[in-house]
Amino acid sequence: MDDGWFGDKYPRKSDNSSLGDWTVDTHKLPHGIDGLVKAAKKHGIKFGIWLEPEMTNNVSELYEKHPDWIIRQSNREPRPGRGGTQLVLDVSNPKVQDFMYQLVDKLMTDNPDVAYIKWDANMNISNYGSSYLTADKQSHLYIDYQRGLRRVMERIRAKYPDLVIQACASGGGRANYGVLPNFEEFWVSDNTEALQRIYMQWGTSYFFPAVAMGAHVGSSPNHQTGRALPLKLRFDVAMTGRLGMEMQPKNMTEEERVFARKAIETYKQIRPVIQQGDLYRLISPYDDLGVASLMYITPEKERAVFFAFKTMHYQGQIIPRFRMAGLETNKQYCLTELNVEAKIRLP
């Protein structure tokens, strides 16, 4: 469930209010979160929910009660971000840390079957200053903020070790090693277009393993680039990371649903190789050769998954030779093509 479910005095109808007021909007959810969780469980679906615990809006009950909880300079009006009202909470403040922990703790206590949290952070620190830190400690804000966040996450992890949490803030610079121990994955970008993702995921993988790199199959035409791409390519690219779906099943054709079902089953079979194997870079998309290639291999070199993508197409194009790497030279391997393309029409 992504956004729009919270707020009492200020119901969340757009991105300009209600952050921090984590109270169910009963007009939208008359049966509460529990009703949705039970409905999902009835249909064999694990339930996930969107949260943005580090943020508030200046149109919110939280801000009305605790204006000193936001990051701001004491002698200047704060400059809001998203929606013209978003502000960042001062996570160096122990009271803010308690508030964030209690938010997640109450959610999970009331709804123990919640399996996944998308932890968003759609604004970076722009009003540099802390009402909690003393004057001589203002330069410590970034460090104390991160330490405060770590303390919150460690408390959450100690009580809910099996809860899957995604750090959804690549655009906000949240993809960093400091938070990796407490999050299962990073959201690389809202741009899920497969050709763009070949480049983004190649770069991201220099720092983070595939198991931490959220890579989802987007719709076609893509919502950001407008480009239409085959479903096979979209799946193949997403399989180089932590595969997910950003598509509405009811808008898919029967052929697409059949292909997607088989592709997901295939990924589950090769997932241990990709998410826990060693990465070998074969041809970089940044070399402008019109192709990109990489492969993952188990440490024992028993299994491997090889990827090759065509990134450009033009008349007279010469495709370079792909040379695999990392395999055992004295072993024989059986090569099997996966995600065999079906006859799926582009929309």
Rank of each mutant, 00 (worst) to 15 (best):
F183D: 04
D2H: 00
Q146S: 02
E265M: 14
G171M: 12
T56M: 14
G290D: 05
S131C: 10
Y10L: 09
H216I: 04
D162K: 11
I143Q: 00
V305Y: 09
Q166T: 06
Y177I: 12
R157F: 03
D113K: 10
V37L: 12
G81K: 10
V291C: 04
R82D: 13
G178N: 11
D90E: 09
Q166F: 02
I70A: 06
Q97P: 04
W22M: 03
V104G: 04
P221H: 07
T109A: 15
V258I: 15
V91N: 00
I274V: 15
G226H: 07
Q275T: 04
L279H: 10
E302Y: 14
W5I: 04
S219N: 14
N16Q: 07
M239N: 03
I270M: 12
T225M: 11
Q146W: 15
N339F: 12
G173N: 08
S293D: 05
K28H: 06
D105S: 09
M312G: 00
F306Y: 15
L29G: 01
V305R: 04
L243R: 04
F306Q: 10
A304M: 03
I165T: 02
R321L: 13
A167L: 08
V211L: 15
W5R: 08
D2Q: 03
I198Y: 09
G277A: 07
A135P: 04
Y286H: 12
G226D: 09
V305D: 04
P285G: 06
Q146G: 01
L36Y: 10
S14G: 08
S139W: 05
G226R: 07
Y267R: 02
D2L: 07
Q73N: 11
N127M: 12
A342R: 13
S284L: 10
V152R: 00
V37S: 11
C168I: 03
I264S: 08
F99H: 04
R242F: 02
Y314H: 14
Y333T: 06
H27E: 11
A228V: 08
Q97T: 03
S126E: 13
G218D: 14
S60T: 01
R197D: 11
V37W: 09
P249V: 00
E337D: 07
F322S: 03
S74L: 15
V237T: 07
